[in-house]
Amino acid sequence: MRTLLMTTVLASALAVAGAASAQSSIRPGQTIQGNFSAKDARMGDGSHYRCYVVQTNPEEAYTVTLSSSDFDTYLSAGPGADCDDTSVFNDDGPDMGTNSQLRFASSGGLWIIKANTLSEGETGRYELRVSAGERVRPTTQVLPIAVGESRSGRLEFSDRRADDGSFYDCYALTIARAGSVAIRLDSGDFDAYLGLYEGPQCDGDSMASDDDSGGGTSAQIVQSLRAGTYSIRANTLASSEEGDYTLSVTSRR
C-alpha cells in the first residue's frame, strides 16, 4: 500500500508538471544513465536539460551527482515538482572536475532535480545518482553575539538557505547604547556575504549588506545603530558553498 501510494503521488506530480520538458522519477539509491541529444529540451541559454522527481523523507540528507565524460555538467534542485523552480545549484562538485554534485536537507515531500549541460548545444551520455545519507535536522536556531565578541561557525547544507540557494547562519545582536559597530565575516573556504537586519530573525529587507569590503573575500559592514535588537546573516555569496568562518562585532568610535 505504501509503495502504491508513493507511485500515485509521483505519477500525479509528473502529470501536473509543465510540458516544456518531460519529467521522470528517480529513487534514492538509484542511478540513471541518459543521453542528451539535439531533440532534448533547451534552457534559455541553449543548454539541454532533463528533469527528475524524487520522493524525500523529513530530516534526511541527500546527495545528487551528475557525471559525464562527454560534456561539462550542471545541476540544480529544489523542493516541489516544478522544473522551473530550483534553488540549489552546483556546477563543479568538490574535486570532481567537470562533474557536478549538490547536497540538500529535506523537510519531506517531492524534490525536483534538473540535469543540465553547462554550455549551449552540448550533447552526450551522462549518469545521474541520488543517495540518501544521514538523518539531519535543518538548522533554524538564532545564535547570540555581542559587541566585542567573535564566533566561529560552519555553513553547510543543513543550514538555513536564502532565496538564491546560499547557506547562512543567523545571529542576534543586542545594542545597549547607540553607537557605531563594525561587523566582519572571514572565511578561507568561501566568498563571504553579510546582511544586517532590524529585529532578531534575519528576515525582511536588510538595513545593510556587503560582499568584500573586508578585503579579499571577507565581508564587512560599518553601521551606526540605535539601542535595540538586530540580526546578522553570516552568508556565503554563492549558492551551495560550504565551509568554516569567523564572525566578529567590534565597537567603532
Rank of each mutant, 00 (worst) to 15 (best):
L5W: 00
V9F: 03
V9C: 01
V9I: 13
V9A: 02
A11W: 00
L14P: 01
A19Q: 13
A20C: 13
P28N: 08
Q30C: 08
Q33W: 08
S37C: 04
A38M: 08
K39N: 12
S47K: 10
Y49H: 10
R50W: 02
A61M: 11
S67N: 09
S69H: 12
C83F: 07
C83D: 13
D85H: 15
N90M: 14
D95I: 01
G97Q: 10
N99G: 03
N99I: 06
L102T: 08
A105E: 04
S107G: 11
W111R: 04
T117R: 07
T123D: 04
S131A: 15
G133C: 10
G133D: 04
E134R: 13
V142S: 02
L143T: 01
E149Y: 05
G153N: 06
F157A: 08
F157N: 04
R161A: 11
Y168R: 04
D169S: 12
Y171C: 03
A172Q: 14
L173G: 05
A176F: 03
S180F: 00
I183D: 00
R184D: 01
L185R: 01
S187G: 02
A192F: 02
G199K: 09
P200A: 14
Q201M: 08
G204Q: 12
D211K: 06
S213Q: 05
A219W: 00
Q223T: 08
Y230S: 07
I232L: 04
I232T: 01
I232D: 04
S240R: 08
S240L: 07
E241K: 10
T246I: 09
T250G: 05
